[in-house]
Write a protein that binds this DNA or RNA. Sequence first.
DNA 1: ATTCTCTGCACCATCGATTGTGCAAAAGTG
DNA 2: CACTTTTGCACAATCGATGGTGCAGAGAAT
Lengths: 355, 355
Amino acid sequence: MTDTGKKKATIYDLSVLSGTSASTVSAVLNGSWRKRRIKDATAQLIQDLAEHHGYTANLQARGLRSSRSGLVGLLLPVYDNRYFSSMAQSFEALVRSRGQCPVVVSACRDPREERQVVETLISYSIDELFIAGATDPDGVHALCEKAGLKHVNIDLPGTRAPSIISDNYEGARLLTQAIIERALQDGPLTPDELYLFGGRDDHASHERIRGFREVKRTLLGADPDACIQPTGYSPAMTARAFEAFYEGHGKLPRAFFVNSSINLEGLLRFLGQHPHETFADIIVGCYDYDPFASFLPFPVFMIQQDSEAMLAKGFAILEAPRRAPVTVLVQPTLVPPRTALTGPLDQLSDAGGNG
Amino acid sequence: MTDTGKKKATIYDLSVLSGTSASTVSAVLNGSWRKRRIKDATAQLIQDLAEHHGYTANLQARGLRSSRSGLVGLLLPVYDNRYFSSMAQSFEALVRSRGQCPVVVSACRDPREERQVVETLISYSIDELFIAGATDPDGVHALCEKAGLKHVNIDLPGTRAPSIISDNYEGARLLTQAIIERALQDGPLTPDELYLFGGRDDHASHERIRGFREVKRTLLGADPDACIQPTGYSPAMTARAFEAFYEGHGKLPRAFFVNSSINLEGLLRFLGQHPHETFADIIVGCYDYDPFASFLPFPVFMIQQDSEAMLAKGFAILEAPRRAPVTVLVQPTLVPPRTALTGPLDQLSDAGGNG
DNA sequence: ATTCTCTGCACCATCGATTGTGCAAAAGTG
DNA sequence: CACTTTTGCACAATCGATGGTGCAGAGAAT
């Protein structure tokens, strides 16, 4: 790739250099040349020239003409937690392995931002879209539908497009049961000693709360409404809920279920403000897995959602001829305290060593 | 936005509907219409039509013609840790606030992948590129240069383009000093009780090791080479280093400096395999901040890098007329153990509550 | 009334690649 | 040698938006 010339080479440049037409160059360089009965020698010549001049196709031009782009989008609510960043990591690898180009964007759980972002992606003729945790999946669906864009919901279901979600109900049951069993080791547990913090009015929260309440009622016999504290997906709000509880009771609940790792950060903020005795004996369950959180100085049970499986399933569904608005459940896994799982980063080759 | 029609509307559709020419429609819809002396009434008519038909510009066509795209790229090594995911989060907000569209891609610390990704981005005529932690910044630089793409290095410096990096040397000094002081509270510390794990042959690692060794020599009087254990950026390799040390010494070093949060995950893997006594008294410093890691059951000092400041500085440099290959140092902050800092997620509005 | 200046817009080439179609020249057939 | 078939490629329209240029008509100036 000797960089001859200053501007990027185009098929027209190569057509002059090779003494062929632009359409021949195009065919050779996009692989359709056998179908077009281009001579092997001609193809070879053009490929050599292309390499020599560092030719790369102008993807905007290609996309404009063919109305496809080779891009696959992933729409995230946020980046900054291990569940979504890990999903982005897996997504990259998966899309790359399929010869397409991953594009990840976040929309900050804002329905307007979501639409805006999707419009932009559509304007770039992306080929497929994975919608992870959209606040308004059906609104986004309408846009995709209109543009003929293949898409699936991941993590939060929509009613109009295929959805692949964690089995939040089952996961919550597993997690609740684990917390309760662990708490019982330290003596009997009364219903008002087990709380749930975090989440809001989305499908995932509902299902988790449902699973929590059911197991709790079964094992502990009751579940006062006051034990459910939805605080939204915000560390600050969650911290406030813990503070409020602490002010009212002089301690934290003996055991509690936290709706997500983002909410669990709210717990950290509380911890930072209080001495160790305050939480020496608590038992926590968190829906989401974060390796560092698993090693906090009290037992933390976590639920790992299998984002890689969800994405893989998503691709499978997009490839299938019929795409009914089915909902596929993917089973999450209970992770006991003090567990360091491997993640997508472990797939990366890193020679390591100092050289 | 009533979705009249099935295909996406173009300026030609609107030109027919409005009885004007396509160029007029184009001018009205891209804001250049005052300059083109379009009558207010005409503009209004076209805007109404556009809204009614849910017109959105085909950005590939626009980009092709104007060879600009409104896209700003961020090239990351990986997503899956808090430093980079937090950087991505800040990046999104910053770019959005400037009316452009953020595109984040990762290249897995693979020089070939880096080039490949940058080529792709260039083919989409992105306007600016932030290169965070490129393995081969100058190789990437060459590509950008050739394409006339404005770019800056973030986090790891290149020699050919402006670079904005953390003051790794100073950060390492702060961190080393903090660990040593804390260790001295528990009694005298000998040079062979303080180790460094992680990092490889990149600029950041070098600077951190330099800072570590200097402070250590100053405060402890010596620094045996064996105390430096570069393991690459891989949790597995780092875990192996801890295991090896443990096998040789029957315990972990009393205090150690870990090169990054990714390496710190290696420590978790070790911890998961050993009883609590093994690490009851260790003192850890980690270059990078992760809120959960800050609350591990032993003192963890962390360094928070100011990625938001780096990005902001990057934009400033890109806007400046002259762009010499300067290197700008941004000061990181020492974060004492058990500290929950707020992050970019706190900027997000989240009504919270159950409704 | 004539010339000049604006105003308001239409026309058209252009960005770089894709693709249906057409047509020479080469090769095969009888 | 005349005729068909195949090979190998060129032509030109097209995707949707942009922006330089030109020009008709309204109003102003003389």
